[in-house]
Design a protein around this nucleic acid. Structure first.
Length: 676
DNA sequence: GGTAACTGGGTTTTT
DNA sequence: CCCAGTTACC
């Protein structure tokens, strides 16, 4: 552990003032790249120096990576419990609290945590009863995942259903009463089955903190609370922080309202702006000396940064002038793909390895064409964001089987596992589950009855899987159980997926990762709260000599930096996303997202704007449209950029139509042109 | 009656 | 590419 004094010596004046602030509640307004993490770590060290026990310091973050990062820097990894700072994501800490007092929350000790996909599955099974299927009087009903989003938005913003629908889902307004019914069914279902979703984790923690007898106990566990990325808290999380530190003593919040990009999951930078009203004695310390980016990059960043009264901030460069961002106009998306490849290679030859360069996109599919081009040219890349590993079908199958082994009463898991078998659809699966009376104890014991429900030709395969899972439940170690589950799924997976071998390799890694947990249940909670971003993520870091270009969504890039950053698709409809254009708030969030993307670059920043956009459509009618340069690149912003034109597409040397016609004539001659 | 195979329409971001 | 509706098969 580094001594507090040494940690403080490494700080600049503002950072040191923040780290050693002795008054009441403190807001550190930390711009991008201003050494926020180091300051927070130093503050934790200073608090220890002031005699605060590490175990009485709580550090709340939004990603586990951020939590691990800071904990690793703030304390030795092998200290005793009393020497360790308590840290994690809001959800992870909530889970810890609830699990420790499960009986007070009327939950089984090993309650199941529903991830958002599980939530959508539950809603899917419940929505028939509320007439939320198919097309209702010509209108398409919201999809299960959309219902889940709406539910989550209501809860995490504390807004009534009607308001959420009006603001964000106007096309669902006609279904308001069905949705209301669905949500109340959903809550009932969760309570009956001992299920807890992400929102519940926070709600239950907040309820405990607000409780007359439990509140003071939970509050009293900590002397200091440090909250990272405060601009990303939702209403419930803001309440939790307030309940943890009602008078603000020992509270430190770090954030930057210009980097708030999670409104879609209920976050609102107003909570950060409201801190001053909540705590009249709030001190605000700004960190504006930027140690990441060159001055030329920061000029653009400062030009596009949205400012708010009382929280203005402009970044000043500590790393020299550098080159201005380069805006490259491209004929179309394919040209853009070639152009990015070319510039990635130029940078590579100039000394920037692939892993020192990142392509940041607004939506995961914006890199589709680029990926084709990268593959064609043999440039290795890894992609972050977009589809998550745990959303792949085979991973869900494995997790369902694991959930059955951990808790045979999990009927949602049974539903998925049974349908994995050839010939078993929703109706048969439901019947089997009803026969097994899954909700009660001893479900496995009733299997012989359930087998009678299945047609003779299907029963043996399903029975084999179930027997193996039953035996897996009796194995002593997590590792053995995970292996047994994988073995049980072997046959059905092979039958279901053409690429079963690849998928099995994924699952072997998953099983290995799970083997490290004290119990199968712990492994499942871990996976729900902190899903691996990709299959490669599970295997640990790629080897040190491996060099991959990084493709990431702008959201997943938050908090990271690269020497060279490429930002494609800077046209209206992509950046900003057309999904966000209808509201002023949506557009502001897009602008903050663009700000986040720009401030990831250390040395060089490339902006790309295709002038012609391709729209994927099945069949022959692929369409193109002419694209407007992103509205974020107005005259002020462009004044800080250099401009370039991409190499034009190759001219057409031979007109294609006559060639095609001659090939068609040759083909026709093979079977004669006319039939008798 | 129930499942699989096909077809047509819609695609953001994630703890 | 996923999802929902339709059709064709057991």
């Amino acid at each position: 552990m580094t001594e507090p004094a040494a940690v403080l010596d490494a700080l600049n004046d503002d950072q040191r003032r923040a780290a050693t602030y002795e008054g009441g509640p403190l807001l550190i307004l930390a711009g991008a790249g201003t050494g926020k993490t180091g300051t927070l770590v130093a503050r934790a060290a200073w608090l220890r120096g002031q005699g605060v026990q590490p175990s009485r310091i709580l550090l709340l973050t939004f990603t586990r990576r951020a939590a691990d990062d800071m904990l690793a820097r703030a304390q030795p990894p092998d200290g005793s419990a009393a020497e360790r700072i308590v840290g994690g994501t809001f959800h992870a800490i909530a889970h810890r609290v609830i699990r420790a007092h499960a009986e007070a929350f009327a939950l089984p000790t090993e309650f199941t945590v529903l991830d958002p996909a599980d939530t959508a599955d539950v809603l899917d099974t419940l929505r028939d009863a509320r007439g939320l299927v198919g097309t209702d009087s010509g209108r398409r009903t919201p999809r299960a995942a959309t219902c889940a989003e709406i539910y989550s938005r209501c809860v995490s913003t504390g807004t009534a259903l009607a308001g959420v629908l009006r603001a964000g889902y106007p096309w669902c307004v006609p279904f308001a009463s069905q949705l209301a019914g669905l949500f109340s069914d959903f809550v009932g279902y969760k309570r009956r089955h001992g299920l807890v979703d992400f929102e519940d984790l926070l709600l239950l923690w907040r309820a405990a903190l607000a409780d007359v007898s439990a509140g003071p106990v939970l509050r009293g566990l900590f002397d200091a609370v440090l909250v990272d990325e405060y601009q990303d808290v939702n209403a419930v999380q803001a309440d939790i922080v307030r309940l943890l530190r009602p008078d603000g003593t020992g509270l430190t919040c770090v954030g930057d309202d210009a980097q708030a990009i999670y409104a879609f999951r209920g976050a609102d930078p107003e909570h950060l702006r409201a801190l001053a009203a909540t705590y009249p004695d709030l001190a605000v310390i700004r960190l504006s000396r930027n140690y990441r980016s060159r001055h030329a990059v920061l000029r653009l960043a400062n030009a596009i940064r949205p400012q708010h009264d009382g929280l203005e901030l402009a970044l000043t460069a500590e790393r020299g002038l550098g080159q201005p961002p380069l805006l490259v106009r491209c004929h179309d998306e394919a040209t853009q793909g070639r152009e990015i490849c070319a510039r990635v290679l130029t940078e590579y030859e100039a000394g920037a390895r692939f892993c020192e360069q990142a392509v940041l996109v607004r939506a995961a599919n914006h890199s589709d064409l680029l990926e084709l081009e990268l593959t064609a040219r043999g440039i290795p890349y890894v992609k972050y964001g977009g589809l998550r590993f745990t959303e792949a079908a085979h991973v869900k199958d494995f997790l369902a089987a694991a959930r059955i082994v951990a808790n045979p009463a999990d009927d949602l898991a049974w539903f998925r596992l049974l349908r994995l078998h050839e010939g078993v659809g929703p109706v048969l699966a439901r019947r089997v589950i009803d026969t097994l009376q899954i909700a009660g104890p001893g479900a496995f014991g009733r299997w012989p009855d359930a087998e009678q429900v299945l047609p003779g030709r299907l029963a043996p395969a399903v029975a084999a899987t179930v027997r193996q899972l039953e035996r897996a439940a009796e194995l002593p170690s997590t590792a053995e159980r995970a292996a047994a589950i994988l073995a049980a799924l072997s046959d059905p997976l092979t039958a279901r997926y053409a690429d079963a071998a690849v998928r099995r390799a994924d699952l072997e890694r998953l099983a290995d990762a799970a083997a490290g947990s004290p119990s199968l249940h712990d492994a499942l909670v871990q996976l729900a709260l902190d899903p691996p971003v990709s299959a490669s993520d599970l295997a640990g870091r790629p080897r040190i000599d491996d060099d991959f270009l990084v493709i990431s969504t702008m959201h997943s890039a938050k908090g990271l930096e690269w020497p060279v950053v490429h930002l494609p698709q800077l046209v209206d409809g992509a950046v900003p996303s057309d999904m966000a254009l209808s509201t002023a708030a949506g557009l502001q969030e897009e602008q903050r997202l663009f700000y986040v993307a720009v401030t990831r670059a250390r040395d060089r920043l490339y902006l790309y704007a295709p002038l012609r956009m391709h729209h994927h459509r099945r069949g022959a009618d692929d369409r193109h449209s002419y694209a407007q340069l992103s509205r974020f690149l107005d005259a002020t912003a462009l004044a800080h950029c250099d401009l370039a034109e991409a190499a034009p597409p190759r001219p057409v040397l031979i007109p294609a139509a006559p060639l095609a016609a001659s090939v068609d004539r040759d083909l026709a001659s093979l079977w004669g042109s006319g039939l008798p």
